[in-house]
Design a protein around this nucleic acid. Structure first.
Lengths: 184, 184
DNA sequence: AAATATACTGACTAATTAGTAAGTAAGCAA
DNA sequence: TTGCTTACTTACTAATTAGTCAGTATATTT
């Protein structure tokens, strides 16, 4: 996994954001498990917002890496790959960054708000393209603008993780299957 | 509005949960605007969890009141009424309790987790019935189990509020119109 | 060998947090 | 009028919060 302290901090912060939310974890929640002092966390990330931004940026890079890996696959398969990633999250009981950070949006420091915005528009941009191309090749079927459909799909993926934690594991399966049925 | 202090506290807590989230507001955020001491808030609601539960219970009662009011309307109209409520929220820039509290689920005190669960299952139960009856009368059209569709609809309503705060006001219109188109 | 940068620790701080306990003023009931 | 309840205030506490700053050991560079 992560070998440097900095990467370990990002790893832990990522997990805490996905389980407890940005406002419910503290520097102590990070320093204690890593057996370092809270000042060491501040050394790498002066403010909590800086840490949050790094978590988002890493997620964005990872996502970009996946997307590049899927480039040559047909669009319906690319979408299924994305659903697979969410299924893994569902098994771990962790939610996605969009689902965790957008509810807290008003409380986030301004630079982090900008990053959250960037994350949302970035994911939606990719998904819009994916849906558009998939429809052109008749591998995906839906009505309306591709961007509007992208909003609905991201909505369903995000909520499937929220709901499955509250209502139980089968909820993810129900929603992801319905989502696939509706589009393919 | 609210005339008793207790009702004013619930009102404010409701607003704070919808804007900042349950973990990002404090007793001071409630006592200061009401010009009372924080101990007065503890008098009415011994713990923060008690306050959270009261906020959910009031929402559940309000929702039940609305639903009873819509009883004689055709199901597609009932659904539109619900969308109207979300549109008002969107204008105010506030999110719904499901969208605010499910991301924080793991951090909530156990009795409040139970209430959040109750709220989710309650809303889904009503929506499942509404969709089922609407389909039987051919006023609503969709494939798959009504419960699965209810999950998707709640997902889209909840996310439309999250997204519209981050991406701008037109996002709600896009999503709610697409939602209506897909079902009617 | 000397200077500099990296990655921390130790020891703080000022503010905020949820929550408590004792007291009090006003209204109502017996 | 005495006692009880309601709705608070005053005055706390112990814990936690993000963040700071001066120091230090270890590499790395010059």
């Amino acid at each position: 996994m992560a070998d440097t302290t900095k990467e370990k901090i990002i790893d832990l912060a990522d997990h805490l954001i996905r389980t407890k939310g940005f406002n419910a974890f503290s520097y102590a929640d990070i320093s204690a498990p890593l057996a370092i002092k809270n000042a060491a966390v501040h050394y790498h990330f002066p403010t909590k917002g800086d840490l949050g931004i790094s978590v988002i940026e890493r997620e964005l890079k990872n996502l970009a890496l996946h997307i590049r890996k899927w480039e040559k696959m047909p669009e319906d398969q690319q979408l299924k790959k994305l659903i697979d990633i969410f299924q893994q999250r569902s098994k771990l009981g962790t939610i996605c960054l969009v689902g965790s950070l957008t509810p807290d949006y008003d409380t986030l420091p301004a630079p982090m708000q900008a990053k959250v915005q960037e994350m949302c528009t970035g994911i939606l941009q990719w998904m819009t393209q994916c849906l558009e191309k998939g429809r052109a090749q008749q591998r995906l079927h839906f009505e309306g603008e591709a961007y509007d459909r992208a909003l609905m799909v991201l909505s369903n993926l995000l909520s499937s993780l929220l709901f499955s934690r509250v209502l139980g594991g089968s909820t993810f399966q129900r929603m992801s299957k319905q989502l696939a049925k509706d589009l393919i």
